[in-house]
Design a protein around this nucleic acid. Structure first.
Lengths: 154, 154
DNA sequence: GCAATATTACTAATATATTAGTGAATAGTG
DNA sequence: CACTATTCACTAATATATTAGTAATATTGC
């Protein structure tokens, strides 16, 4: 079309992923607001519910929150009583993070609305497409995730 | 497994999309840093290159940047001479945003590295999967995008 | 026409992201 | 054991995100 316009050949993959995520999370945002929890805070609560207590470092990797951001987010979450932190005995640098009854109760209150929203999304995009899409995401993430040290002496 | 643990039934779709995006953008971040432009600023530059001049409101929708964020981002971009803004004659509220020679030159310098990175990513995930994935993303975005007013009296 | 409403860009306040760098603790090496 | 490199959480500075609200303009309904 415009040979001199300097357009890039490839489509904007990061933008497409961002748009997809924004469209999805838009369905959940009202729920988070209603319960007075931020997106990142809920991401962490949900990760801890799914996985159990985790080290701060592991939370950062799983939830894709950088170490400096995490320092602030977890600090605020501790202030409002959503988490508790405890240093590891054998390694005084590391911190183990776990949920409190308060955040568990919050999650329990939110769960029905979250589940209903997922069902609503699936009814729009179709169950079959939904399954395929999760598979494709897993494949992409698997292919792009750098091989890591899986013998971490836990 | 843990009937009383309060786990949610569905997988965390927003997190999966975030992880995918982070893994992809990680390949581009070094390029952006090398050229001293932020992620959002590049997102806007690239959108303007692909689409041509746009109103601030349109940029916000396309790039998924909220109006308050955009005010700051565009202000900084104007400071460093990446964009210029002009009020519409027929509507004094709206602003038309366009690139400058400086940002076009920057984009031209970055393009080869960007393209090479896309080729590298495609070589990892496979061209065939890549095509299918773009299609799936388009389908998801299309299904979740609310119908909008397409007769905007331009 | 005119009053009610909607749109657009913006400010303020707070939360989070990013980059660089720091100090304490640990792991690895010779 | 001593030395070095790495890891982990953190601070500082700046950029961006989110929510609520505002002023100026446009549009709509009656």
């Amino acid at each position: 079309m415009h040979p001199k316009s300097g357009k890039l050949r490839h489509r904007n993959l990061p933008l497409l992923l961002l748009q997809a995520r924004e469209l999805v999370i838009a369905h959940f945002r009202p729920i988070l607001n209603e319960h007075g929890i931020t997106e990142q805070q809920w991401r962490i609560v949900r990760a801890l519910i799914d996985t159990g207590p985790m080290e701060q470092r592991e939370i950062g990797e799983l939830c894709r929150i950088s170490s400096p951001s995490l320092a602030g987010v977890l600090s605020r979450m501790q202030q409002v009583g959503y988490i508790k932190r405890k240093r590891l005995e054998r390694d005084q640098r590391r911190l183990m993070v776990s949920l409190t009854p308060r955040s568990r109760a919050l999650s329990a209150r939110m769960a029905p609305q979250i589940e209903a929203t997922y069902r609503r999304i699936e009814s729009v995009i179709g169950a079959e497409f939904s399954t395929r899409f999760y598979g494709a995401l897993d494949e992409l993430i698997g292919a792009l995730t750098p091989d890591r040290d899986y013998n971490h002496s836990s």
